[in-house]
Design a protein around this nucleic acid. Structure first.
Length: 272
DNA sequence: CACGAGTCCTGCAGGC
DNA sequence: TGCCTGCAGGACTCGT
């Protein structure tokens, strides 16, 4: 499941593959992927003729900047982009959208769970697009405001696990990297925000950063069906707790436990 | 305001 | 063998 590092890998791939290409048309096989505009025909009409100028990323959102519009794409669980040079007319059943470029190359969007979303907004309007506007800073942002982060966490009464998953507090972390961050910081996922000391939050900040930077370097994690453009990342081989229920902790040897926190599967070492 | 629960969707695991 | 149930998960909406 793509989190910040995986989305960053996709961003880099798209940057190499589709920048400067002009969209001739879009085939849509599953319209529910498109949220904005609500009329799919309008989506097709607005995007036709647009040239992709650059690829950005904010948290787990991909931004495809074009001449008059910006496409905001969220891959959610299993969304992925597949670029092919040659023309094609039939696709596997999980391809829900195909961008056809004027040079006959294609960009296919594949999403088994159909959870991904796309919003096409007028150029510049993506700034005020709600989910993006409310997004918290990324831990790897050089301007990351540590004090503000600490204050917001300490004002909350819910478990730290849920707080780190809240994209409005800090963006880019998903279930895997939150569990890993807490394991690395040696902080129990059920500890509430207001119970954490400044020092413990410093550990969390350091761990988040380290985690994400290493994951990007490793080409992302390949969990379940997720694969990046350039094949598989290797980060999954370095996970300390995620998906290791019952296996022994890398730090102390105790058996990794799995519980539910805020409705999410949560892995941790009961000793560390 | 803050939080919990329900929703979307499909492949896969487990039970019988 | 094959059906049925439940689970996974990000972010949004709705209800308390």
């Amino acid at each position: 499941m793509p989190e910040l590092p995986e989305v960053e890998i996709v961003r880099r791939a798209l940057e190499e593959q589709v920048v400067d290409k002009t969209i001739e048309s879009v085939d849509i096989y599953y319209p529910n992927i498109i949220r904005t505009p609500s009329d799919v025909e309008e989506f097709k009409w607005l995007i036709a003729g647009q040239t992709i100028r650059s690829i950005g990323r904010k948290g787990k959102y991909l931004l495809l900047y074009m001449d008059q519009v910006t496409l905001v794409s969220h891959l959610r669980m299993e969304g992925k982009y597949i670029f092919t040079e040659q023309n094609q007319t039939s696709f596997d059943k999980h391809i829900h959208l195909v961008f056809r470029f004027t040079d006959k190359s294609l960009l296919q969007y594949r999403d088994v769970r159909k959870f991904g979303t796309m919003d096409l907004l007028p150029q510049g309007k993506e700034q005020s697009f709600m989910p993006l506007k409310k997004l918290g800073q990324e831990p790897i942002d050089p301007d990351f405001d540590q004090q503000r982060f600490k204050n917001r966490v300490q004002s909350k009464t819910v478990p730290i696990k849920q707080i780190l998953l809240n994209q409005e507090i800090v963006s880019g972390l998903g279930n895997i990297y939150v569990d890993e961050t807490l394991a690395l910081s040696k902080i129990h996922p059920l500890r509430t925000g207001n119970s954490l000391t400044d020092q413990e939050l410093d550990q969390i900040i350091t761990a988040m950063k380290q985690m994400l930077e290493k994951a990007i370097e490793d080409g992302g994690s390949t969990i379940r069906s997720y694969e990046s453009f350039y094949g598989k990342g290797s980060m999954q081989d370095h996970l300390a707790v995620y998906g290791r229920t019952g296996q022994s902790c890398l730090f102390c040897g105790a058996s990794i436990e799995k519980i539910k926190v805020g409705g999410r599967g949560t892995h941790y070492c009961p000793v560390c």
